[in-house]
């Protein structure tokens, strides 16, 4: 369980992937992925559609077992981990799924309160108060607390799901395309929220995103997944000047160039 400081930078590595291989039948999705995520940083994972970003994320949160290689969370190896240890780790992670994955039978308030009810001994009144604070933190109006997921808009669903992911105050937050499907204002606010939470709570964030604004504004480092491996990992500024073909391909579109001109 001892976190291992990275030799080079002296920063603590909280997620470490070495030679991760994933196969779906005959198809090779990951072919030796190496990746280190440091405590307190926002790391964005990008790559073309179907390049295996969501799958890699699922492997890091123990929903899918890789076919080879090693994944360590806080220094604990996930391959072959036993259930009690896995559960202890899960309480330290928050996950925002691509579609929100709110439980449709529960209101937003009950959804957000559910992890507290399951994992702490707090009383109901306290759970409801803490849940409403998280709901407000995620930028939802108080009236949303009583709504069912089927009554929420896309942006509200994402926020409610973020509130639920954050309610146990996780150390690492995993986000799968958090701003996809949001209007630019909501997406911008969402980015600000992530930055704020990172600052205040020392959160480590791993996000899969296609949102160029998020990449420039929120991510400390960006990792490009292509051809089953990490093709490059660096700050957005450095990556956008890279000559590596896979990276150029990803950041060469007219939209990417437009954003780059605005940001530089």
């Amino acid at each position: 369980m001892t976190p291992m400081p990275d030799a080079g930078s002296g920063r603590e590595v909280v997620i470490s992937l070495r030679g991760v291989r994933t196969l779906f039948g005959e198809r090779v999705i990951h072919d030796g992925v190496d990746l280190d995520v440091y405590r307190g940083e926002v790391l964005a994972l990008v790559g073309g559609s179907g390049s295996g970003k969501s799958t890699l994320l699922r492997e890091m949160i123990m929903l899918h077992t890789p076919d080879g290689g090693s994944i360590r969370l806080f220094g604990t190896e996930l391959v072959g981990i036993d259930e009690p240890n896995a559960d202890a780790l899960r309480c330290r992670l928050g996950v925002l799924f691509q579609q929100g994955a709110l439980f449709s039978a529960l209101t937003v308030l009950e959804n957000v309160g559910l992890p507290l009810r399951e994992h702490t001994e707090l009383d109901d009144a306290m759970i409801d108060s803490l849940a409403s604070i998280k709901i407000a933190q995620a930028g939802l109006p108080p009236a949303a607390a009583g709504l069912y997921p089927s009554e929420l808009s896309g942006g509200m669903t994402k926020r409610a799901a973020l509130a639920r992911a954050m309610v146990l105050e996780p150390e690492i937050l995993f986000l799968d395309e958090p701003t996809s499907g949001l209007d630019p204002t909501s997406a911008g606010l969402f980015d600000q929220l992530i930055l704020k939470l990172k600052d205040l709570l020392g959160l480590t964030v791993l996000m899969v995103t296609h949102d160029l604004d998020s990449l420039w504004d929120v991510a400390d480092r960006v990792a490009v997944l292509g051809d089953g491996r990490i093709q490059g990992i660096d700050s957005m500024r450095a990556l956008s000047n890279s000559t590596q073909p896979h990276i150029r391909e990803y950041f060469e579109g007219p939209r990417a160039r437009g954003t780059r001109e605005r940001k530089c």
Partner: peptide, 8 residues
């Protein structure tokens, strides 16, 4: 943010 919550 706590100011923005209300009783359920």
């Amino acid at each position: 943010v706590a100011g923005k919550t209300q009783a359920p």
